[in-house]
Amino acid sequence: MGKTSLHSALDQTLKKWGNCVEKKSCYICGKKNLSKNEIGLTKKLLDKDSKRFYCIDCLAEYLEVDTEFLLAKVEEFKEQGCKLF
């Protein structure tokens, strides 16, 4: 394998790795590095392919429910074995 193709393979691996470790910001307040649970909630409740992500407080406001209610839902989804959390 030549140097260029080795770099290209490395780039692709890093890109894939980068996609695995998701870094998302809140669409409303801009909070950076949303937690796994926050990302999971957005995906579970809005769409797996959602373009916008929300921190738990902004998601609660957006969906017109209490933050505590969403936290309870996270636990419920975990109990059901959902792998998003």
């Binding site: 579970k44 409740l45 809005l46 769409d47 969906l63 839902k73």
Partner: peptide, 13 residues
Amino acid sequence: GISGESLMHLLDL
């Protein structure tokens, strides 16, 4: 175009 599962969970809320 949307997920029935998401619809169901949001309606549950």
